[in-house]
């Protein structure tokens, strides 16, 4: 006979921001289980109306992030064992700093709009008829760009950032990290507008360097360093303009 099935107590956010509340579920514990497995189990076996988002299940698409026991996590690659408190409880809530649509699904519109506002957009300088531009992989700008490039747009950093909660205009770590990788893209033709954008009201100078973003980024990127790069760039460009 199989060993008696163990259960975990899981509190899950239900409803929207204003009227929602935590709801308790008992979920069978497995030897190897991710937070996303727990959420899917609830939706498939306990309450089919639970709203949440995921796609790839392997840490590529960036759609499954939630607050797990108060910390932002990519749920498809977060093992229950790693985050379960001593009391054996799990609390799963929608990402911080974003409007909640329903249950665990947030509205990410503002997150993506801010990428555009921060000029995290490529401005091509060539057409399809030009030669492909060679970029030396060892060049210092390419090395800087590489360090910032593997972002999956999961908004974990955005949820971790207290400056985002304090200032709704702040573009946040992901958008500025993207802007920094483009500052280091020699093919890009929009640098002046980008420096203007990242030094505007919502820009890099809001960042307090508390590094919540770098602490939680699941891809181990360091948006704080990227933002520090932008700060340096805006300062040196000021002197360039003066001289």
């Amino acid at each position: 006979m199989a060993a008696a099935q163990k259960y975990m107590q899981v509190s899950v956010w239900r409803g929207d921001e204003a009227t929602g509340a935590l709801e308790e579920f008992d979920v069978p514990a497995q030897e190897s289980q991710t937070i996303l497995d727990v959420v899917s189990w609830i939706q498939q076996n306990a309450d089919a109306t639970l709203a949440y988002r995921y796609a790839c299940r392997v840490g590529m698409c960036g759609s499954c992030a939630m607050m797990v026991n108060g910390k932002p996590r990519w749920t498809c690659r977060t093992h229950v064992k790693k985050v379960l408190g001593d009391n054996g409880r799990l609390t799963i809530e929608p990402l911080r700093n974003l409007p909640v649509i329903k249950d665990l699904a947030t509205d990410m519109t503002e997150f993506f709009d801010k990428w555009i506002a921060a000029e995290g957009v490529f401005h091509p300088t060539k057409t399809r008829y030009d030669e492909i531009e060679g970029i030396d992989p060892e060049s210092s700008v390419r090395v800087e760009a590489n360090a910032a490039i593997e972002c999956i747009n999961c908004a974990v950093c955005y949820a971790a950032c207290d400056v985002v909660s304090a200032n709704p205009d702040y573009f946040g770590p992901a958008a500025l990290n993207r802007a920094w990788s483009l500052v280091n893209d020699t093919r890009d033709g929009g640098q002046a507008a980008r420096l203007e954008a990242v030094s505007s009201n919502g820009g890099c100078h809001n960042c307090h360097s508390q590094q919540g973003c770098s602490t939680f980024c699941p891809n181990e990127l360091n948006p704080t360093l990227s933002i520090a790069g932008l700060k340096r760039e805006t300062v040196t460009s000021l002197f360039r303009r003066r001289s």
Partner: peptide, 14 residues
């Protein structure tokens, strides 16, 4: 201290 702040660099800030 709320969980998302419980890391050494936040304490340095505090």
């Amino acid at each position: 201290i709320r969980p998302h702040r419980a890391h050494p660099l936040w304490l340095a800030f505090l």
